[in-house]
């Protein structure tokens, strides 16, 4: 197909512009992320040496172990369940919060947004430790109960405590993208829906939720993934009693004697692949329609 020179010129300029936008970030990612990742991919097909050194002997054994041993399969399932739960709770708590912020007068919105983030500018571990102080057997809640003559309850080192810590740690990662999406939402559409006789709830479900879906999707992904890889919260609030995927990978790399980097790499590769497929699918499903 022949283009006239002007169109040709336009296309050329567009292409240059695209290259300018893409090149710096993409180059950075390929150099400092994709290439290092290839190392892990290679490791995952290697043999573990007797002292935990990687021996360059190609094998599929690591992947076979992962898919055949029930302890590993279970670790995947358990982690996915915990992450789903965390994501759902964050979404239920985060959406109304983001909505609340968007609905405030303009000059309040930025401070309110910052208020969400400020707690996260202290060290993560220290925050989790603060929860230990609150939940421990002789912690703030239980000593208050005790002072009131009420029976004390075991709060720390339970799966509930782990879940609490996860939600606490991930909430802003849900609220930020939700805020960005709701901020773009045209609220007159809700009025239009109301004028057409839709109930508030129906208007929300049919109009607002679909239009803010990109935010929901982004937030869910930002919460789901790190939760799947976490290892500190279950250690500090859950008493390290249950292994999640993150604990297992961390242990294979850094705690086992000898460590097993090839198996850890394979485990990470499978996890990433599954997540990647899930996420691409999820984003397609939730956002393609508004293009």
């Amino acid at each position: 197909m022949a283009l006239n020179p002007a169109q040709d010129e336009l296309q050329r300029r567009e292409r240059v512009r695209l290259a300018g936008l893409l090149a710096p970030g993409l180059l950075w990612l390929i150099l400092f992320f994709a290439l290092p990742l290839v190392v892990i991919l290679i490791y995952s097909f290697m043999t573990n040496g007797p002292r935990g050194n990687v021996v360059f002997q190609p094998t599929l054994a690591n992947y076979i172990t992962l898919f055949t041993k029930s302890i590993y399969v279970n670790a995947y399932l358990r982690s996915i369940w915990a992450s789903l739960l965390t994501t759902l709770i964050c979404l239920l708590l985060g959406y109304p919060l983001a909505l609340f912020i968007v609905r405030q007068p303009a000059r309040w919105r930025t401070p309110l947004l910052f208020l969400i983030l400020i707690p996260f500018w202290t060290n993560f571990l220290v925050r989790i430790y603060a929860w230990q102080i609150i939940l421990a057997n002789n912690g703030l809640i239980n000593s208050s109960l005790d002072a009131l003559g009420l029976p004390t309850i075991t709060l720390l080192n339970t799966e509930g405590a782990t879940l609490l810590g996860l939600v606490y740690g991930e909430l802003p990662f849900m609220v930020l993208p939700l805020y960005a999406a709701i901020d773009r939402f045209d609220f007159t559409l809700l009025e239009a829906a109301a004028d057409l006789g839709a109930s508030r709830w129906r208007a929300f479900l049919r109009v607002m939720l679909p239009m803010t879906m990109p935010g929901v999707a982004a937030g869910s992904v930002l919460v789901f993934i790190p939760t799947l890889g976490q290892f500190v919260v279950s250690e500090l609030l859950g008493g390290a009693k249950v292994d999640y995927l993150g604990n297992l990978i961390q242990r294979l790399f850094l705690r086992s004697n000898p460590p097993d980097w090839p198996l850890g790499s394979a485990m990470a590769m499978v996890m990433m692949l599954v997540l990647l497929v899930l996420i691409l699918f999820y984003f397609r499903a939730t956002t393609e329609d508004d293009r």
């Binding site: 992320f33 993934i225 799947l228 850094l254």
Partner: peptide, 13 residues
């Protein structure tokens, strides 16, 4: 490629 850094467990990276 863009989603990979989000998906990767920190320890692996």
């Amino acid at each position: 490629l863009l989603y990979l850094p989000i998906v990767i467990p920190e320890i692996v990276m």
